[in-house]
């Protein structure tokens, strides 16, 4: 486990026990979602209980990785020094086919991003401890 997070390193995810299965899934290139065994609904961000019916019977299942861009921004300001070489970079919010929303970046696109655009999950092995979810046009 690497703990170096100086100004030269990009922020790493704060992985709480609730979030662990999500990030473990990314490592094996799977988008996993916590499904409620009571009401059947998946949710994000991962929480200790289902936010719809408060059941704690959660079952992590692989999602399709398909989704739609519900909104996006292009960040110009250098909020994090480690992103200085990346500006402007995009941040997209994807509404997954299964329902929940998730925040990520869009890669391998032809210059245009649109609300309503169909996208597909892809996985970026940042280092041996961290794989990030990103999306590419479907």
């Amino acid at each position: 486990m690497s703990f170096k997070q100086g100004i030269t390193a990009k922020p790493r995810p704060r992985i709480t026990p609730d979030h662990q299965p999500l990030w473990d899934g990314f490592k094996v290139h799977k988008l996993m979602l916590p499904y409620c065994e009571e009401c059947g609904k998946p949710h994000l961000p991962p929480g200790p209980v289902c936010p719809y019916c408060l059941s704690d019977r959660l079952d992590w299942r692989e999602a399709s990785g398909c989704g739609t861009i519900s909104t996006w921004v292009e960040v110009h300001k250098v909020w994090f020094p480690a992103f200085a070489d990346d500006v402007p970079y995009n941040v997209i919010q994807v509404e997954l086919a299964e329902g929940p929303r998730i925040t990520a970046n869009l890669i391998d696109f032809g210059g245009k991003i649109e609300v309503g655009q169909k996208v597909q999950a892809t996985f970026d092995d940042v280092d041996e401890d961290l794989t990030m979810l990103r999306f590419k046009p479907a």
Partner: peptide, 28 residues
């Protein structure tokens, strides 16, 4: 408390949150 999930993607600040809302409004 979403920061733990946002920061690795370079997403931060109330302004960016409102920018996400504005873009969706523009799109819709």
């Amino acid at each position: 408390g979403a920061n733990g999930l946002w920061f690795p993607y370079g997403m931060t600040s109330p302004g960016a949150f409102h920018a996400l809302m504005m873009r969706r409004h523009m799109g819709l």
